[in-house]
Design a protein around this nucleic acid. Structure first.
Lengths: 341, 341
DNA sequence: GCTAAAAATGTAAGCGCTTACAAAATTTTA
DNA sequence: TAAAATTTTGTAAGCGCTTACATTTTTAGC
């Protein structure tokens, strides 16, 4: 049962310590502006009352929250986990708190989350990818909340970005696939609508096809949501066609792992019968059987960089230059030479 | 560059719409207490100014935030993802917002997070497991913030809980393992300090040993953090001992998958040479090779139940009875009969 | 059409904190 | 040791919103 006991406030502390509220506030926020004896007295009162500052009141009075918001497309799998972890650690070390929201890959939910985080006084926002209603950028402008885009790099984006070139990265993976003699390629892509990363990865594959003098339109592409189960069904679909591919390129590791699992269930040997690749290099890729060939994304570096850039934007009210990070191929067992027929 | 344009407030909207701030507030919070014509006028003004309410101000004036906080031990893997997703969906449908924080399995971080969420005006808190400094419960009491415990069930806990009996669940898994003829058991447990779930699972194994008339102290236990990599090393350690077990019981699926991966790398056949089991039944368990035998935890049901119970506590300032949910064995390929020697 | 009841709107007092400015206490300087 | 400079503390004005209460407008009843 919860009593009707009222929650201690700054004023209660001040009264108990025999000082003014201003002094208590200073003890808590800039301790060195207060003499030792007073500080001790105040902190004792704080302890005794079990006082905890009211964040809402503080935000309102100080007009800043030291809080950064991040809206990621999903928390269901680990795609964003590592990058976000690094982001949060860097923020923390600089005195900021991170609030994370998930949009479930839905633009209208993302919109709502952006408004929610701004309402809650986020000093700045981390967004994934550039694709969204321009009105949202106007809103942020209007509310004076700087935003930074991550998980992609675009020197000409509406907002500065910290990320990598999805297109180029995927192209280099496909180059390697060609080198292994693969001719028949199928693609399991993420949904490209409202998702520039997925779109760019797909473009990267086409770039490689064109560069190799092949027809990019002949490519067999299945689009599906980023879930293990979706990757599995898509793989089954792709492999049920009369003309089986020798390699299935997946839009990310989650799809790739789903494909691997279904291959096992269907009795299809990887990479003997068909090769499978992913993208992201999350932990899952390494432990999959066989281990998944993928594109390594520098998640931690991206997270740390993004945090620094965003803090810079928040504190100095400026935009920062976009940062491009390098990706790297991770060749593992799931990709082998094309089977000779 | 961010202009010095000032952010629109309720008052700006009121002025533009030619009404009082009270009316604008009502339009936003209880629209039916305002006549249609006025509402339209006000909403137009809101739209025109790109107004977004200031959450801090609202919380301070209204003395409640419609926000629930959850502090989970980790976001790094998917252990809590599904349950939390269901929790958040149920909250959302009831008009609440969820804020999630992660404690990285560290009591002192959890303490800080609890204080942070309370400061931020969380109306209620979801905590994982009962194990924590009793002073924290006093603090919550003092701050008048109800808390609910999940992922475990204890009818006599300091706080009401919604969860399952970790001990009983593990015991039934071990019973099944005995049925398959296994004699030599090794355990890869999570760190039991400050983690009642891990401890109870370990107890469950001992219960089963005792019930089977065996010596519970002869059990070979390795404790390690809940990471895939830790599971892998622990497995290697366990299998390097002179007296190899015929089954390795892992404290959760993450450890189990790590063990599977290392078994593959070491050329150890599962379940031919050794069986491996997990706990939780996260997606990973199903896609692992071989698929991981585990204990299914009703994550979604738990999340939904917890949300309902917590809202009940928040809105009516009462405690609720604890709820015990059933678990179920998921027998998959990673567990086989004990190899005959 | 006039009054009473009901509905819509307005007025204004905080919510708990920070901070500019003022005042008091302490230290330094001459 | 007194005045000046510096440090510490206090005073009080908001921050943007909600809501109890007061007032005005509308509707209903006769």
């Amino acid at each position: 049962m919860h009593g009707a006991r009222s929650v201690p406030t700054l004023e209660d502390v001040a009264k108990l310590a025999g000082v003014s509220t201003a002094t208590v506030s200073r003890c808590l926020n800039s301790p060195d502006r207060v003499v030792e004896a007073t500080r001790t007295k105040v902190l004792e009162a704080v302890e005794q009352l079990g006082y905890a500052p009211n964040f809402a009141a503080r935000v309102m009075a100080a007009k800043r929250s030291n809080t950064i918001g991040a809206i990621i497309p999903t928390m269901e799998n680990a795609i964003f986990a590592r990058g976000l972890q690094a982001f949060q650690e860097e923020l923390y070390s600089k005195g900021y708190t991170l609030i994370v929201a998930s949009s479930a890959y839905q633009p209208h939910i993302e919109k709502e989350q952006i408004r929610t985080l701004v309402s809650r006084g986020a000093d700045g926002l981390l967004l994934i990818g550039h694709d969204r209603d321009p009105a949202l950028y106007d809103f942020l402008e209007n509310q004076n909340v700087p935003a930074l885009v991550a998980w992609t790099f675009d020197a000409n984006g509406v907002r500065p970005s910290v990320g990598f070139n999805n297109r180029k990265a995927m192209m280099s993976l496909v180059d390697e696939i060609f080198r292994l003699g693969h001719q028949k390629i199928a693609v399991i892509s993420g949904l490209t609508e409202d998702n520039d990363r997925a779109r760019q990865r797909l473009e990267g594959i086409k770039d490689a096809l064109i560069a190799a003098g092949r027809d990019p339109d002949a490519l067999h592409v299945v689009q599906t949501s980023y879930e293990i189960e979706s990757g599995a069904s898509a793989f089954e679909e792709v492999m049920s066609r009369p003309d089986r591919p020798s390699v299935v390129i997946c839009g990310n590791d989650v799809l790739g792992v789903g494909a691997l699992a279904r291959a096992r269930d269907m009795g299809i040997d990887v990479p003997g019968d068909v090769s499978i690749t992913g993208f992201d290099d999350i932990e899952l890729a390494k432990v999959a059987t066989p281990a998944l060939t993928t594109v390594h994304v520098p998640h931690q570096e991206m997270g740390r960089n993004a945090a620094r850039a965003l803090i810079e934007m928040v504190e100095n009210q400026i935009t920062v230059p976009s940062v491009e990070l390098a990706t790297a191929l991770k060749l593992r067992a799931s990709l082998g030479p094309a089977p000779s027929e």
